[in-house]
Design a protein around this nucleic acid. Structure first.
Lengths: 115, 115
DNA sequence: TGTAAATATTCGATATGGAGAATATGATTA
DNA sequence: TAATCATATTCTCCATATCGAATATTTACA
């Protein structure tokens, strides 16, 4: 079950907020897409995703080699509202603009291949 | 101006969330009321309030010996929504129940004296 | 001006979190 | 089974946050 402390710890790191905002807007993304979007070392992304997974803020689905992350479906409404408001805020920053733009420009996205 | 990082740092500490929730619901409280409600050493309260004041999450008003804290009036809407949702969540906890109950039972509350 | 009440600040110790680098695991395909 | 791609974990180092204890500051009032 989601613990308050873990949830707010999740939000206390800018990298995690960027990943979370991308997932909130896109619905589901695999690690390599998130990595490409925020342009950071893979282990770093993986660790931050693990923090959010263990906090039950994110849920995971495996499909072959790829692992897809999404908002945890059991997220309480109050927590969902907070993620929504955070996303609204971060969406206005250049930082997030670039994340979203990079994601759009990414070639060979796994979701596209399987689609 | 409110910085994202400072705002979310504010929320990462449970004591600060308790203080913030009390202020969200009561509108304005002085340090001794907050101290009485959460039942913690005065320097600890004061330091946590300072963190939120410096982050521009809280605003301050002095009246004689007492210093009243309240939500910062310039808080952006998205941040206000987050405080609102956080308060909604914490309000369901026994922890917060007791905070609110202690505040109600407090004798000689300064606001009452001046009213 | 001296004292008391309310609040703030400083200091030293400890703990926690994030970073980079290296390595491990797991699935796929040749 | 070997090689490769995607992802996860471990380790050590460093920075930062929090705490308790002590002390300082500000205001009111005798």
């Amino acid at each position: 079950m989601l613990q308050d402390q873990n949830f707010f710890d999740t939000l206390s790191d800018e990298t995690r907020r960027r990943l979370l905002a991308l997932l909130f807007r896109q619905g589901e993304l695999c690690v390599c897409e998130l990595q490409y979007a925020v342009d950071m070392p893979q282990p770093k992304i993986s660790r931050h995703l693990a923090v959010m997974r263990e906090a039950e803020v994110l849920a995971v689905r495996r499909e072959g080699t790829w692992i897809y992350y999404r908002l945890h479906p059991g997220l309480p409404l109050w927590a969902y509202r907070i993620v929504e408001a955070m996303t609204q805020s971060i969406s206005q920053s250049h930082l997030f603009d670039r994340d979203a733009a990079r994601l759009e420009e990414m070639a060979n996205r796994p979701a596209r291949c399987s689609a």
